[in-house]
Design a protein around this nucleic acid. Structure first.
Lengths: 139, 139
DNA sequence: ATACAGTACTATGTGTTACAAAGTACCGTA
DNA sequence: TACGGTACTTTGTAACACATAGTACTGTAT
């Protein structure tokens, strides 16, 4: 019964669907390897963790949206530098459209006025006090 | 290996984290029962299905964010009219803040210029042609 | 009264996916 | 040759949207 419903979780849920889009957006601006991406996302106040990013990149690569090449590093093992394929570019543009529509819809919804429907109770017959928290079925 | 990666799925994922916020936003403007909400969301281009909405409302109610009362209908069984509790109002405002930050971050990210980092290959030693899709580890 | 269709709500199973945490492998330096 | 840092991988868990089927109440036609 008791439910947590903490903000962190909800924030994480909100990021969820947008991560893919954001990561494609970062890679689109130029080849990047995972730690680059984590860093840039953090700067943009969009946290991503390694355990999230790696599987996501693999998924996008297997779907043909990304390619990578190995590049040596002088401070550790070689890195996978990712870049968008043509298909990835197309996909990105579709996602951009989706994001714009979504953001627009949400903003319209949340700014909507205290609409014209002030509780249209068809028969206007409240069966229970609004403040009573009963679980029973009516009747 | 082969991956689907269809737009519908991603769109659904994008909606995912935002649904809770949108539904609270609808209820906040005045008591509403589930079919009301489904309808209003559809008008706003934010599809929600019954199977999604009912559990979500139950979850929010169990967390103390919503209350409901039964109201008779003359075209079927009685309806559960939901409204925000004080706690729900507070929660909504937090989510609104989260949404604003998120939307802002995404828009900044996607409009960022072709930044100043044109593939900073530390040693500038590509180990593989970018267009070759090999799975092998280097060396 | 009885069957039927419409509306409202409930319950269950499935797939996707973010995150946590532990593990593997490569590199340069002491 | 041991050690610390960096890069990548793997596995398990929990949250949640969605599809689907099911229950229950209502008014209307037979």
């Amino acid at each position: 019964m008791e439910n947590k419903m903490n903000i962190e979780n909800t924030q994480s849920q909100m990021r969820r669907g947008i991560l893919e889009f954001c990561i494609l957006s970062v890679i689109r601006r130029g080849e990047a390897y995972p730690s680059d991406i984590v860093e840039e996302m953090k700067e943009s106040k969009l946290q991503v963790l390694e355990g999230t990013l790696y599987p996501l990149l693999t998924r996008l690569k297997n779907a043909g949206m990304l390619t990578y090449r190995w590049v040596e590093s002088n401070s550790g093992p070689p890195r996978k530098y990712f870049s968008l394929t043509d298909q990835g570019e197309t996909f990105y543009k579709q996602l951009e459209g989706t994001w714009n529509e979504l953001a627009n819809a949400v903003n319209k919804l949340k700014n909507k006025e205290e609409s014209l429907k002030p509780v249209t109770e068809e028969t206007a017959a409240p069966m229970q006090d609004p403040n009573t928290e009963t679980e029973e079925q009516p009747q």
